[in-house]
Design a protein around this nucleic acid. Structure first.
Lengths: 244, 244
DNA sequence: ATGCGTCCGTGACCCCAAGTCAAGACACAG
DNA sequence: CTGTGTCTTGACTTGGGGTCACGGACGCAT
């Protein structure tokens, strides 16, 4: 199994230009902007670098000058999209005050809304997770680990300090599990298609969806929550007023 | 990419041949066999249909005759690989007798071994999950839902009947969560690269790995297990004798 | 054996999108 | 205006997915 694909010598392919030249910065931004649209709309493979160039009114070669390859371009697009997401601890302070799991609930409900307002970055994120190539995915995972764009690590620390999370698990394990579960839940919200098991019927009433969120929170709470914070089997707490 | 991508009118592209022609069945099998090797070794994109043909000593066109497209070929490869995996309830009867979570533990430990013996189908499964294209992934998800190749649904029923699983969750929810978690755990075992959060150091001692499995089981048990089966916070049970 | 129809493999060929590069345009300094 | 370095261009190359008209092999009936 060479490197994943055949790059055992690993020419890093991404990050090309050493230090951003002043002028080109604006252009790079424009390209990324337009590319984002195209990737989101058509998916990774069906998006054409040529089309992006045409849409921008520039030459295709120019894009390669800036980003080296389609992969490299997508990687930039991906990073920007993911960085645009809020971090867990960006929740309003009253929500934070209510504790770890209230913050989670807040974002679960919120994501549902954010999705409707601006699905594009979410779709980009989805593409990065499933729709490109293992080689790129590896690069993406490196990025996610090193940047922790959702602030999961500090969020988990927050939960640990508040004694709302189990002390008997490695913190890495908690972080991984939280990331997995949230990612999947988000995916399921985004495309019922992609995981028909969870939100099988699209036309589901808001009620039902909220019940799912509730259940999901319960699962997480039991899985990684401290035993003290919840009598087993009970629903976490009365919810706040963010009903819909 | 005709078919697969850009098929909003959805000409189903896969399943070509109406009813398997008698003679060609053997050849199809040979192609799938060789293709499996190539995909596993190089990844989806880097695998060349031409190479596969050369390796088989047949014409490239022949492969397209049989499978319609590279995607179609991979889909067959994927299905075969996934179908080759054991189902949960294929565990030895004494393990089954020990209950739902013992079956889980059995497979967690087992997978680790199976991986070493024959990593190819696991890698194919990984490619199907992450390394192709959203369009194909959608098809794959359809397949997974309709075939339930790991037998998750009946396994969960088994757990419910034995009263080892929570009654207050939708069964779909339990199935989804179990699938998610197990898939991820398997991925993490397969490629530390792909998810450095969990098995960060590759050279980890078997001890440590077993501890992780233990923790992971605990998480699952708390998440979806019935409250009765476990005092909160305790380790699930003494393990059997399958230590290494 | 001969002829006919069907199936299937073939490989030369097409298409198209990623990626390259030599030459020109442009900015700016002196 | 000229020289120098940087950015842009678009024609070109590469290469892999996908097609198709042909012919050979085989089954089968007469």
């Amino acid at each position: 199994m060479p490197g994943i694909a055949s790059n055992r010598v690993a020419p890093p392919l991404y990050q090309r230009q050493a230090a951003a030249r002043p002028r080109s910065e604006a252009k790079r931004a424009r390209i990324v902007e337009t590319a984002t649209q195209h990737f989101a709309e058509h998916g990774y493979h069906a998006a054409r670098v040529g089309d992006i160039a045409v849409a921008l009114g520039i030459a295709k070669g120019s894009i390669f000058q800036h980003f080296g390859s389609k992969d490299g371009l997508f990687f930039e697009v991906y990073k920007r999209a993911v960085r645009s997401f809020p971090k867990y601890l960006d929740a309003p302070s009253e929500v934070r005050a209510a504790g770890f799991f209230e913050v989670l609930r807040y974002w679960l409900v919120r994501t549902d809304h954010l999705l409707r307002e601006d699905w594009i970055p979410y779709r980009i994120s989805l593409l990065g997770n499933y729709g490109t190539d293992l080689v790129l995915k590896r690069e993406i995972n490196r990025f996610l680990v090193s940047e922790d764009p959702y602030g999961t690590v500090s969020f988990v620390r927050f939960g640990l300090e508040r004694r709302e999370l189990r002390k008997d698990m490695d913190i890495e394990m908690i972080v991984s599990i939280l990331d997995w579960m949230m990612e999947r839940f988000q995916d399921a919200l985004l495309t019922a298609e992609l995981d028909p098991g969870l939100f099988r019927r699209q036309g589901e009433l808001a009620e039902k969806k909220e019940a799912r969120i509730q259940q999901f929170l319960g699962v997480l709470q039991r899985a990684i929550g401290a035993a003290t914070s919840l009598a087993p089997g009970a629903r976490p707490q009365a919810r706040g007023d963010h009903r819909r």
